[in-house]
Amino acid sequence: MSPVLVSRPSLSLHPSQGVSLGDTVTLRCHLPQMAAWVRLYKEGRWIHSHYKYKEQDTADFSFLSTYREHTGTYWCRYRVPWSAVESEKSDPVELVLTGEGTGDSRWLCLLPTGPCPTS
């Protein structure tokens, strides 16, 4: 039996910049094929799963009101419905929040695009 090849997902943030404490932010895992389970990880630890009931090419994980604890590095992976094979993890996305008491710059940065603007 040949191994099952599972394409790598990608992860993006919406909105992609200017997210302040208390704002809503969505981490969207883009799937190259139908998946049964999509998992979101923060700092290397699994934090949430989303089961796909119908064919969609994305899985959304939203924070309705962001807190300082949401700052960090996220990635996603998925498992296809007919196999126990999991995908590779997506490239990481860094969520940086701005606002009172954060001490951060005014931007939300996506890795691996580079450092945050300092202005």
Rank of each mutant, 00 (worst) to 15 (best):
G44W: 00
E55D: 14
H48I: 05
D104K: 14
P92H: 08
P81K: 01
T26R: 02
L97C: 07
D104C: 11
P92C: 00
R8V: 09
D104M: 13
P92F: 01
L40Q: 08
V93Q: 15
R45D: 09
L108D: 06
F63K: 10
L11R: 03
K42L: 01
L97A: 07
I47C: 05
P115V: 11
T66G: 08
P115L: 08
K52E: 15
S49M: 09
L27M: 11
A36W: 13
R8L: 03
T58I: 14
L11W: 05
S62P: 03
V93Y: 04
P92M: 01
D57Y: 09
S16N: 09
T73W: 11
R28D: 07
A36K: 14
G103E: 02
M1V: 11
T98A: 15
K54E: 13
T66E: 04
L13T: 06
V38I: 04
W107Q: 08
D23F: 01
P81M: 04
C116S: 08
V38E: 00
W75F: 11
S65N: 10
E55W: 13
R45K: 14
S105E: 12
Y67G: 13
E100H: 12
T113V: 00
T102H: 05
Q56V: 09
P9R: 07
D104N: 15
P3Q: 09
G101C: 03
L31S: 02
V85G: 03
S20Y: 10
P117T: 00
P32R: 00
G103D: 03
T58C: 08
K89W: 09
S119E: 14
E55Q: 14
T71K: 13
P117D: 07
E88Q: 12
R68H: 15
M1E: 11
S62R: 09
V38T: 07
R8H: 04
T24V: 08
T98I: 06
E69V: 12
D91M: 08
D57K: 08
